[in-house]
Amino acid sequence: MEDWRFKPAADLGLTPAQRLRSLQREAGLPGAIGQALWWNAMRLYAAAVHRVRVEGREHLPAEPPFVLVANHASHLDTIVLMTSLTRAQSRRAFPLAAGDTFFDAGLSAAFAAGALNALPVWRSRTRRQEIDALRARLADDRCIFILFPEGTRTRSGEMGAFKPGLGALVAGSEIPVVPAYLDGCWRALPPQRKLPRPLPIAVRFGPALRFADRANDKDGWHAVAAASEAAVRTLGGLAPRGPAPPAAS
């Protein structure tokens, strides 16, 4: 008789507080119930309040893993993207959320982990090993990562530049990046507002990009970010971004 193969939870041995913030967090039955409740409520909300229209769903790969990237204007963005996925897909999806916004306080971290299934990204102090952990998990666990490479919500309504961290997740791998453009989130819930306006929202998915031939180094990451940003801009009918303004001295 061959041995049984056991695979303990990757986040076994962490305290409850550490688990919430772990990149290796695996939701059990309680997490699955919490996420099902939250995301089914959000499906109703997105359909009823924002009449979300989805275009180009056929560009989503049939099987994970893949990375979903979009422009970032509001807290509705994750909700719109997540509820545009099938239920089977959304069970494998992890929104990457700003650690300092969502994972500092205990209650907020419990919500982000328990209901959103979010993983923390610490914007100003991301360490190499954390990026490597995310990259490995994306491939090994066949996940879907939802990522806003601008790094923050736009404060002006204009789409900002994509940061190269996205590249560190996929450069040199077969994992596709699906660009999406979110239209209407800025008007519905700009960062200055507390509560959303009931305005319509549309999301357009574009053809998946692959970066197997890009080197997994700084140049490769920047190339991945630039190509992904260009794809999102095209979907949104925006002009390509000009050369970066000279850095203020």
Binding site: F6, K7, P8, A9, L12, E26, G28, L29, P30, A32
Partner: peptide, 13 residues
């Protein structure tokens, strides 16, 4: 819950 997480049974809902 602990047993399921340790044995991996939690991946069988």
């Amino acid at each position: 819950q602990e047993y399921a997480r340790a044995t991996g049974l939690f991946r069988e809902p």
